[in-house]
């Protein structure tokens, strides 16, 4: 068994290395912003990366979105039916999707797919000296690799979030009107009665931040990779874990801020 002193030391070490890591991450972000607006603008790379992020995640977003919508509709219906407000299933699902479920779940999915892939790709380039090769050519790896990926993540996640919302609402509508036979016109009129554009904005604004942070974390852990193939695996893992945690934590702070602003 570990004695008390050892565990205190371990906690201390963990805290120190986390603070150190956080410092390095902020340095990385500073470097990103330094290069963000510097030419050459690699527009083609940005589009390729958007395609990459979308391609990695679109099918899963589609599945996750539709089943999330269906399941939430199901659960909500059983609650609401007790107090005879089952016609409100539509707006409740639509609101939950717009404000929370679509941006957060899309963020988690993109962290697991595209964030991981970014870390793996850059990590592999790091251990095979491709990153050094860029540097020796006088090209900043942050400029060439990280900037297009982070821009792409920031653009792609809102698009995926909107897709998630759309298929989620379709799923909910199918369950609500076909399984629970809520009147179709009533379902839609209630949605439009209770949904405002602000609700959609809130989710989309969040998803911009999530896209930015997930891609930043993915690329950052890619650049941190050392020690060969094993290191690439570790880096990928860290990118997923920290990407997901950050999405959830950031969600709280963004929500509390956006509720006041919007």
């Amino acid at each position: 068994m570990m004695n008390a002193r050892e565990s205190v030391e371990q906690v201390g070490e963990f805290v120190l290395s986390s603070v150190d890591g956080l410092g390095r991450f902020f340095n990385f972000l500073l470097e990103f912003f330094y290069w963000l607006l510097k030419p050459p603008y690699r527009i083609r790379n940005i589009f390729a990366e958007i395609y990459f992020v979308g391609n990695k995640s679109v099918f899963i977003i589609f599945l996750a979105g539709s089943f999330t919508g269906m399941v939430v509709a199901y659960q909500t219906y059983f609650g609401f039916q007790l107090i005879n407000v089952d016609s409100l299933v539509g707006p409740v699902v639509a609101l939950s999707l717009a404000k929370e479920l679509a941006p957060v779940l899309s963020g988690l999915i993109v962290a697991g797919r595209a964030g991981a892939a970014m870390a793996a790709q850059i990590g592999t380039m790091k251990v095979t000296e491709q990153v050094d090769a860029l540097e020796v050519m006088g090209i900043s790896p942050v400029h060439y690799l990280a900037v297009p990926k982070i821009i792409a993540g920031t653009i792609a996640l809102p698009l995926l979030t909107i897709l998630f919302q759309f298929v989620g609402n379709v799923g909910s509508w199918v369950v609500g009107t076909k399984v629970f036979v809520i009147d179709e016109a009533l379902y839609l009129s209630k949605v439009s009665e209770f949904m405002y554009m602000e609700d959609i904005y809130q989710g989309v604004i969040k998803s911009f931040f999530f896209g930015f942070i997930v891609a930043s974390i993915g690329t950052y852990f890619g650049f941190q990779v050392k020690n060969g193939a094993e290191g690439v695996g570790q880096g990928t893992n860290l990118a997923v874990v920290w990407g997901m945690i950050t999405v959830l934590v950031l969600d709280y702070f963004l929500t509390s801020a956006l509720v006041r602003i919007l």
């Binding site: 592999t124 380039m125 095979t128 000296e129 491709q130 050094d132 090769a133 540097e135 020796v136 050519m137 006088g138 090209i139 900043s140």
Partner: peptide
């Protein structure tokens, strides 16, 4: 310094080609 590095060419141990 970054621009200055264009004076160098480097052959890496495993070539480091962009894969």
């Amino acid at each position: 310094l970054m621009a200055f590095r264009r004076n160098f060419g480097m052959l890496f141990q495993y070539a480091a080609l962009f894969d």
